[in-house]
Design a protein around this nucleic acid. Structure first.
Lengths: 207, 207
DNA sequence: CCATGTGAACAAATTCACAGCA
DNA sequence: TGCTGTGAATTTGTTCACATGG
């Protein structure tokens, strides 16, 4: 590793993709792979794979390639997937409840340990084993569960207030699905995913 | 406009963001906005806004700025949002049904006109007014409804086969939510969204 | 040998800075 | 005057090509 430089969002995104490819290879029983083979199989660029990985250390063996499982493990560690990240979901509508089921179905690093909503009809209901509690309990839940990640799946009008509440409650990162540009509070890493934007991009390609 | 050059994915993504910002401004009753004001309000870059927009024509008035509604309309047209894109959903699990409800809740360009699943328990059920039919009926549904867009929300093992089925049925664009790298069939625009990748990126930022 | 890791060459994207127009 | 639209400068990202080492 060469002094933990800044990692570009593009590289970060590709690290996740490499991990997905490696898992797929591992599932097929492949133990070693060269950047070239990987590039051909998954429509990537061989030199880019090498450049991306080289930022974090020397993972390959010259003349041979990369050990699939070893590299996989190393990437998981880089992406913090070898640690558990307790997650709370704010807003249990269609998307919120789908995400709870999605995240808890796969036994992965992000598991949902709490959920809140302000709709009386939803409070008290359990989704994939997670009890939906009133929005006022948010800070309490974050404290009780040591939740690190907050998932925002509330309507856009409510997004900023709930974001601020998450930050105030001491959450360490936020994943926002509300279609709005949040005003950041502090230095909390925040990732916004606007499903409508993906569809709109497709709309352009259709035109 | 200057001879319809290639539009970079980054620019395309930002066009969607600009549209979101303009709608928000319009909702606040703002009628005119300068690139600078917009940049400050939404944490964007003023010169980048101008560069991006200038690719498609001269939308602004020097000394004044942009007409919010006019630019909004123009962007919608660029993104093909002034046309209707009938959409079919393949796979009506958590995410699939959430997307059906999501897309049909907002009266927007993408509305779901059909859905298929291969689970007997789901076939015959209606989700937000959309009847779930057997997977075998896919080609028929695409033909009946003139569906342009296919949304893939099936488990990863089934994704490639269903993708191929969509393409064979004559779909014009595919939105894939299965966490797999699809092998493209033909020149069909295809956009993949892997929710796990967004979480993994957040994992890195937490580490 | 063969494939990695890397500096050097190239390409793309962003920012700067200002001419030109309402 | 004030803000757009745009070439030029800069930064960032990608590809190339090869020295290096298992």
């Amino acid at each position: 590793m060469k002094g933990d430089r800044h990692v570009s969002p593009l590289t970060l995104h590709r690290l996740s993709i490499y991990l997905r490819c490696l898992r797929s290879l591992s599932g097929e029983g492949v133990t070693t792979v060269s950047s070239q083979t990987m590039a051909e199989s998954f429509e990537l660029s061989a030199s880019q794979i090498r450049k991306d990985l080289a930022q974090f250390g020397e993972f390959g063996i010259r003349g041979v390639g990369y050990d699939v499982d070893q590299l996989s493990t190393r990437l998981q560690s880089l992406l913090g997937l070898d640690r558990h990240h307790p997650t709370v979901v704010v807003g249990t509508g269609n998307l919120g409840s789908a995400l709870i089921r999605f995240l808890n179905a796969q036994k992965a690093a992000f598991s949902v340990v709490g959920a809140v909503d302000n709709d009386q009809d939803k409070i008290g209901v359990s989704i994939a084993g997670v009890l939906v509690r009133p929005a006022e309990d948010l800070a309490e839940i974050v404290a009780e569960t040591s939740a690190e990640v907050g998932v925002l799946t509330v309507p856009s009008q409510a997004a900023q207030a709930n974001y601020d509440a998450l930050v105030a409650a001491g959450i360490r990162a936020v994943m926002n699905f509300a279609p709005i540009r949040l005003r950041r509070a502090g230095q909390i890493p925040t990732r916004s995913v606007d499903l409508r934007i993906f569809f709109e991009e497709l709309g352009f390609l259709l035109a």
